[in-house]
Amino acid sequence: MAPDAVEFDGSSSSFKKVCVMGAGGCFGSALVHHLLQRGYFVHAAVNTQVEMQSMNADGKNLRVFHTDPLDYHSILKALEGCYGLFYSFEPPSDQPFYDESMAEMEVRAAHNVLEACAQTDTIDKVVFTSSASAVIWRDPSDSSPSSSDVDERNWSNVNFCKKFKLWYGLSKTLAEKTAWALAMDRGCFCLRSILCFNHVVNCNEDAVKLAKMLLPPDVSSLTQYYSRGEQDGVTKNKQQEAQQAHG
């Protein structure tokens, strides 16, 4: 849970101070626990007073901050004196499902957080948690070759996400693109993006909730579109093979 990306040499305690944003979520809270076990001093940044009260800040190595990812100054306060940041976006509790406005919010949050990192002299490394949805949504009609393998060169098709209202995928794609663009522009810290599963599924209701978040309102239109795209792709491949055979 605590990647080697934030390991470092040196005995100064200041180099073991890291911030976890989104510490109130299942991923963030587990990460805080593991970092404390490994001897880190942790600034746990949470979004609500309820999350703040639920964090056990009795230990001397943990400080809890109430931050708003849309409030630049609250982010700066949580980052103060930290060497690294683990960032995971947690949507507001009153907006459990993604929509177009949530996509805009997540992009603004990513920009604020990375800009705050650039303005914090002690920040050297940033781990930005991402999602497979930032790479999997591709239009089957694209000219690029279809492949089940994806890497850092692949992105979900933004227009495709908008067309089928894949707001979760759109949010993750645009937020990560924003983070990388700002990191490359500032060049004052090392950014790493990792894929993670940030949702716990313990029952059928959890699975339904996750599916509603990941999929568009009209799933049938998406499956029909993909089916047509696959059929067109098969026909195109057969035509190319026939041309090569007669060439």
Rank of each mutant, 00 (worst) to 15 (best):
Q119R: 13
F8W: 10
G22M: 06
R38N: 15
P3V: 12
A181N: 11
S11R: 09
V113M: 06
L215P: 05
F27A: 06
R192F: 12
E90Y: 06
P3G: 07
N154V: 09
A134T: 03
D124L: 08
A181M: 08
N112P: 04
A245M: 12
G59N: 13
K162D: 08
S156R: 04
S130A: 11
F27P: 00
L79E: 03
F197L: 00
V42G: 02
L70P: 04
D124W: 01
Q37S: 15
A242L: 11
V42Q: 01
D94G: 01
N204L: 14
C190R: 11
L76M: 13
F164K: 05
D149M: 10
G39N: 04
C117F: 02
T67E: 03
N159T: 15
E176D: 10
C117T: 03
T223P: 03
D218Q: 15
E205P: 00
C82I: 05
S54H: 09
L222R: 11
K172N: 10
V150M: 13
D94R: 00
Y98S: 04
D149H: 08
F65I: 10
L85V: 12
Q53L: 12
T223N: 07
A207Q: 06
A103T: 11
S74P: 08
F189A: 07
M52P: 01
V50C: 02
D206L: 09
D9G: 15
N157F: 03
C203F: 06
F86P: 00
L85N: 03
S147F: 07
C82L: 04
S13P: 04
V201N: 14
N159G: 14
G25V: 00
D185T: 10
V20M: 07
K16G: 11
C26V: 14
G169T: 06
L76P: 03
L191C: 01
Y226D: 04
D4K: 15
I194H: 09
L170D: 01
Q119H: 08
V135H: 04
A23K: 02
D185A: 14
A103N: 05
Q95A: 13
S193G: 13
V135F: 12
D185F: 03
S148M: 08
P216S: 08
V113Y: 00
S131Q: 02
M102Q: 14
A116V: 01
S171P: 03
R63I: 02
S101Q: 09
T173I: 10
M102A: 14
E104P: 00
V234G: 02
V113H: 01
T173P: 11
F128N: 01
Q231F: 12
V219D: 07
L76G: 15
A211Y: 13
T122Q: 05
N61M: 08
Q37R: 09
R38W: 14
L31S: 12
S156P: 14
E241W: 07
V127L: 15
T48Q: 02
A57I: 00
K77W: 00
C190I: 13
R228L: 14
F86M: 08
H73I: 08
P69N: 08
S141G: 04
S133A: 13
S54P: 07
